[in-house]
Simulated assay, not measured.
Amino acid sequence: MQVNSHIDKGQFISQVRVWARELGFSQIGVHNVDLSSAEPGLRDWLSHGFHGEMAYMAAHGMKRARPAELVPGTVSVLTARMDYLPRNTPEGWQSAELARLQNPASPGEGVISIYARGRDYHKVLRSRLQKLAERMEQHLRELSVAGVGSDERDAFEYRVFTDSAPVLEAELAARSGLGWRGKHTLVLNRDAGSMFFLGEIFLNLELPPTEPVSPHCGSCDACITACPTQAILGPGRLDARRCISYLTIEHPGSIPQELRPLMGQRIYGCDDCQLVCPWNKYAQRSTLPDFDAREGMAGSGLLTLLAWDEAEFLRRTEGSAIRRIGHERWRRNILVALGNALHGGKLGVADSVAVRAALQRYADPEANVSDLLREHARWALALPVSDDGRESGVF
């Protein structure tokens, strides 16, 4: 049911902003549940198969654009963003990260997206959104006891989300004024760039919506040009099947051979479209230690990362977003990166020998590895593979 509260909603939102700041959020906004104008774009995107093997993107139909169907009784959505650059991020970090990709300090370095080097953002945001919702609930209860607002003390209902359900997060964020949709489809903010996470609280309390902001990309197309796999087909049009973030995280099987050389040494996610964005010179450091890079997640060599057995992988990625891809997909990504490092012309003789030896251990027909890993190792060594991606001949 909807809460018919007579509280001063402007004052209430001001108080919620204070609580949100205390919990580490950078900004909040409010939108109603009408996303009907986003449905044609969603249908078109799905009809072209741009979601790849992310079946969950299509599984709920248009419910993704209909908050009140996803959570009956919802009349408002509170949106929130949280900056995630690590606290010790130096000035000039964009140039430093681009250099990591183009001329890594270690030619055999594995590159992990900045957002994934710390704690799993799902855990951080969900917990803090829950705390924010509980503070809202407690405040409304106190007002009710004091005789202000609704007499139905248990009527306030909510549900928190962060990249965990069929929710059009970026669209809600843009419509509630947290930023505008950049040409790469991410949300951009004039004061914070795009280096932030998004989350929502679905509410049965009607709140005044916050105003959207106008877009400020102008004629800039740096993100489109910079995409290594040309996954951004045009302004606001992304083919996830070509996106390195999708390939290294969501794609479960064999990575298309024509895309492997374009992945470089990126083994989890990709930041290129954000690194070249002029607005990210304003990106903000997080106030939380959660997003500080963990040991081994920045600057580690590919051979070191490949050497992690499953137990060490699970230990190292405990509480990390990386754990969700599993050990096999982790090794698959590293094998591709090793192939690119091997044939990139930057490895010394000793490093080349070590990389080849590691790849041989995975490519050997007698190796105790999956066909998926063997096939990627053989590709990395430039050994023959058949048209269907299976090994051919004898090793």
Rank of each mutant, 00 (worst) to 15 (best):
A231T: 06
E134G: 06
A192T: 09
G193I: 13
E250C: 10
S176G: 03
E134I: 10
D239K: 09
I255L: 14
R141V: 14
E157H: 11
A146N: 10
G110I: 11
S245V: 11
D221R: 12
A133F: 01
L125E: 00
D120V: 06
T185N: 00
A133K: 00
L238H: 15
K131N: 04
C217W: 13
G199N: 01
P228K: 00
V213T: 15
G193M: 03
L186Q: 04
Y158T: 08
G108Q: 12
V145L: 13
D154Y: 07
A174N: 07
A165R: 02
R153E: 12
G234H: 07
T229L: 13
D191I: 08
R117P: 08
F197T: 00
T225A: 03
I244D: 07
H251F: 07
S113M: 11
P215Y: 12
G110S: 02
E171D: 02
T162S: 05
Q138R: 07
G236N: 12
T225N: 15
D221N: 15
A173I: 06
E171M: 02
R159A: 12
T162D: 06
L233M: 15
G234A: 14
Q230P: 08
R153L: 15
V124M: 01
R153Q: 08
L172H: 01
H122G: 00
A231E: 09
D191E: 09
G182R: 05
I244M: 11
L178S: 01
L188D: 04
R117T: 02
V148Q: 11
L186F: 11
R141W: 03
P235D: 01
R126E: 10
A240S: 14
G199C: 07
D151T: 13
L172I: 03
E109H: 03
D191G: 06
L203V: 12
L125S: 10
I201M: 01
L238I: 09
C243T: 08
V111R: 09
L188R: 11
F161H: 06
F196W: 07
P212S: 10
S127C: 09
L233E: 13
S194K: 07
A165P: 12
T185G: 14
Q130A: 14
R141E: 13
N204F: 12
A240N: 04
R242M: 10
I249D: 02
S176C: 14
E134Q: 11
Y121G: 14
L207G: 01
G110K: 05
R126K: 15
D120Q: 02
W180V: 03
G149A: 09
E206H: 09
I249P: 04
I224E: 03
C243D: 15
C243Y: 09
V145E: 10
E152N: 06
G182K: 15
P208N: 03
V145R: 11
C220H: 06
L205S: 01
G253S: 04
R241C: 14
S113K: 02
R119F: 07
F161G: 00
D239A: 14
Q130V: 11
K131A: 15
S144M: 09
G253Y: 04
L247R: 06
C243I: 04
D239M: 06
R117M: 08
E169L: 02
N189Y: 02
D120A: 03
R242W: 13
Q230N: 10
G110R: 05
R135K: 05
E169H: 12
A133D: 04
